[in-house]
């Protein structure tokens, strides 16, 4: 299974993306930027510093993770569903020597690549505004972005595999993505939550992504680094595995 046969699948998606690269990047950038700048400046002015930093600086890391999550999720839900279900692209590829694991691996790494671009775009804004405490420390965000992208791409592919239509994705957004955005620590430290909600937030992968990203922006090493990385990897791998099982049941039976 460890070979480069997934690469043509990745290349296919890249070739499509290249045609619409500019609007796609702008789209990826606009939404998180508006959150970060609108809330950071607007709300930030009314708030005291959090842990000694202005609200905008606090918000920066959350915005990176939120943007990466969104990008990986949209790619593996709507875009992947079009390829799998509407355009029958996957079925066509399965008639070639490639197997389902090659297709899914290509899609997984593609979605992570695309979300890496989204993350880097936000990171450039952060650097531009000088929101990071230490430039070299903030480079540590890159592996966090990759891991977060793989995590949410894996989960997204699993949801894609069991989805009967586009409308189904709304459940995932309502039941998983929105709670993560609101409880995972994008807008405030999860330590502010009551205990019972904190327990819930601890189960959410976005919480762990932000637990890694925020200290790196604010200039210190995260606590329990390996634990957070492990949680993200575990969600991603479990999602990918579920995606494989359910997509096989869907397409190859």
């Amino acid at each position: 299974m460890l070979n480069l046969r997934f690469l043509p699948v990745w290349q296919r998606n890249f070739l499509v993306w290249k045609k619409l690269a500019i609007p796609s990047l702008l789209g990826n950038l606009a939404d998180p930027m508006l959150y970060m700048l609108g809330l950071g400046y607007g709300l930030g002015r009314l708030l005291p510093d959090i842990g000694g930093v202005p609200y905008l600086n606090f918000l920066a890391a959350g915005t990176v993770c939120y943007s990466v999550m969104n990008s990986a999720t949209f790619e593996t839900l709507y875009s992947a569903f079009s390829r799998m279900h509407v355009q029958k692209t996957w079925a066509a590829i399965l008639n070639t020597p490639l197997g389902l694991h090659d297709v899914l691996l290509g899609e997984w790494i593609w979605a992570a690549s695309k979300s890496l671009l989204s993350g880097i775009a936000i990171l450039i804004v952060i650097w531009g505004l000088g929101l990071q405490a230490d430039f070299f420390m903030s480079l540590g965000l890159l592996p966090v972005i990759v891991l977060t992208g793989l995590c949410f791409a894996g989960l997204g592919l699993a949801i894609n595999a069991i989805s009967p239509n586009y409308d189904f994705f709304l459940y995932y957004f309502t039941l998983a993505i929105t709670p993560m955005v609101l409880l995972g620590g994008v807008f405030y430290p999860p330590s502010e939550l009551p205990d019972w909600l904190k327990v819930a937030a601890d189960w959410l992968p976005l919480t762990h992504a932000i637990a890694l990203a925020r200290p790196l922006v604010l200039g210190h090493l995260p606590h329990d680094m390996l634990w957070h990385a492990f949680i993200l990897a575990a969600y991603g791998v479990a999602g990918f595995w579920a995606a494989f099982v359910f997509t096989r049941r869907r397409l190859l039976r």
């Binding site: 296919r12 070739l15 499509v16 355009q87 029958k88 692209t89 079925a91 008639n95």
Partner: peptide, 14 residues
């Protein structure tokens, strides 16, 4: 092997 599937699965983006 070459396969001509029942449903057109050409890539519409290309």
């Amino acid at each position: 092997v070459g396969v001509v599937p029942q449903a057109d699965s050409l890539d519409p983006d290309f």
